[in-house]
Simulated scan of single mutants.
Amino acid sequence: MASQASQASIAPQAESEQPLLSVQDLKICIQMDNGEMKAVDGVDFEIKKGKTLGLVGESGCGKSLTSRAIISINPKECETTGQIVYHSTSEKTLNNLNLLSLDPRGKQIRSIRGRKIAMIFQEPMTAFSPMYTIGNQIMESILIHRTKNKKEAKKIALEMLSKVGISDQEKRFDQYPHEFSGGMRQRAMISMALSCNPELLIADEPTTALDVTIQAQVLELMKGLQKEFGMAILLVTHDLGIIAEMCDEVAVMYLGKIVEQSTVDEIFYNPKHPYTKGLLKSMPKLGTDRNKRLDSIEGTVPMAINLPPMCGFYDRCTDRIEGVCNVQAVPKTQLSDNHMVRCFLYKDKNEGE
């Protein structure tokens, strides 16, 4: 059941300081037979207008649940609390609006979902209905949010197919998803997401099922369309190469928490959390011995059920401090104005020596 936090309780910020979206203390719990799973546990981040935030981490760390909570499409078993504050750039009625206070099936969230905040799903073959043509499904969103005129909606859909690099749009418009290759389905998914000129695009593993050549084309396409439409992007991925290519800021997730957050340059050139360092070491690099094995992070992500107050990365960490990391929850440490880490190895910038 979503939090019923009052919209009026959210204090407005100055326009110059205002992000497009603020996620504050987001928690998503699921009741299991053997206890409560804290799938997302106190996540905070901001997405700035026209910028790209990367949400990175291993499978099962809560990235997709976090992104889907923004548009209220998680399963009903997910008990969600916190605030997701949306600051529309075009409509004053949507400014400082806590999306979690809205009915997930109500008219107001449905006017935002697809129109103001759009999403590219992880697997386009399952995201598209096999019963309807690609054109019909792109038109549906346009008819709901932009125009009731079917001829105009079709014209917009054809223009979007052209923008994402699909040739022979008239023919492709009447084809079904199974008649598209993986790369073309992903392009069609992007065209559907952008058909209503959203302010925020959520891309959940947008290139996972694609080969590297098509992957590069899709990323370049997203960057070009972002520049053209001026939209912000939340990019959810486990691939640090994509993060380096696409993002302005990075939030590293582990076991439902953001363990490190900063600019992309700071994360890649000055990582602090042992988990972030492990992810970077596991990336292949040009010029290294082809016979040398890549570094890996030993162990697996534990289940987030009935966890004691301790660092979730403790069992896998080579820098753990016995009697500290395993006996108390790890607070946030602000290393600088734009660099946060959850680790006992560092002191907050405001603490004395």
Results as ranks from 00 to 15, higher is better:
305 I>R: 06
302 P>I: 10
216 A>M: 02
258 I>D: 00
261 Q>V: 11
318 T>P: 08
249 E>V: 13
241 G>F: 13
237 T>P: 02
321 I>K: 07
319 D>Y: 07
220 E>R: 15
270 N>Y: 10
251 A>D: 01
308 P>L: 06
245 E>N: 08
290 R>G: 10
217 Q>G: 05
319 D>A: 05
220 E>D: 12
223 K>A: 06
225 L>H: 06
319 D>P: 03
270 N>V: 07
320 R>M: 14
307 L>F: 13
242 I>E: 00
248 D>K: 09
315 D>E: 10
236 V>E: 01
256 G>C: 05
318 T>C: 02
317 C>G: 09
255 L>G: 13
311 C>I: 06
225 L>Y: 03
251 A>R: 06
283 M>E: 04
276 T>W: 06
263 T>N: 07
233 I>V: 15
227 K>S: 10
311 C>Y: 09
274 P>F: 14
239 D>N: 09
228 E>Y: 11
282 S>K: 10
318 T>R: 10
305 I>S: 12
264 V>R: 05
268 F>L: 06
266 E>L: 11
320 R>V: 10
265 D>E: 05
235 L>V: 09
275 Y>G: 09
295 D>Y: 14
230 G>A: 08
300 T>F: 06
215 Q>Y: 07
227 K>I: 09
244 A>D: 01
299 G>H: 14
212 V>Q: 11
313 F>S: 04
256 G>D: 04
219 L>N: 02
243 I>V: 15
253 M>P: 14
307 L>K: 12
297 I>W: 05
218 V>K: 02
232 A>L: 10
214 I>E: 00
286 L>E: 07
257 K>R: 11
267 I>H: 13
290 R>T: 15
234 L>R: 07
252 V>F: 05
285 K>Q: 15
301 V>Y: 11
294 L>G: 14
256 G>I: 11
293 R>D: 13
242 I>D: 00
263 T>R: 08
265 D>G: 00
237 T>F: 05
303 M>T: 01
286 L>M: 09
231 M>Q: 13
263 T>W: 01
278 G>N: 11
226 Q>I: 01
277 K>E: 15
288 T>Q: 15
313 F>Q: 04
274 P>G: 04
266 E>F: 01
250 V>A: 12
236 V>Q: 02
315 D>C: 01
267 I>Q: 04
274 P>W: 11
249 E>M: 04
262 S>C: 04
241 G>T: 03
308 P>G: 02
284 P>C: 12
259 V>K: 02
221 L>F: 05
280 L>H: 06
253 M>S: 10
277 K>Y: 11
276 T>V: 04
237 T>I: 03
225 L>M: 15
297 I>K: 10
236 V>D: 02
303 M>G: 02
313 F>L: 07
244 A>H: 01
312 G>K: 10
281 K>D: 13
266 E>M: 15
238 H>K: 00
303 M>F: 08
242 I>N: 00
291 N>F: 14
303 M>Y: 00
260 E>M: 03
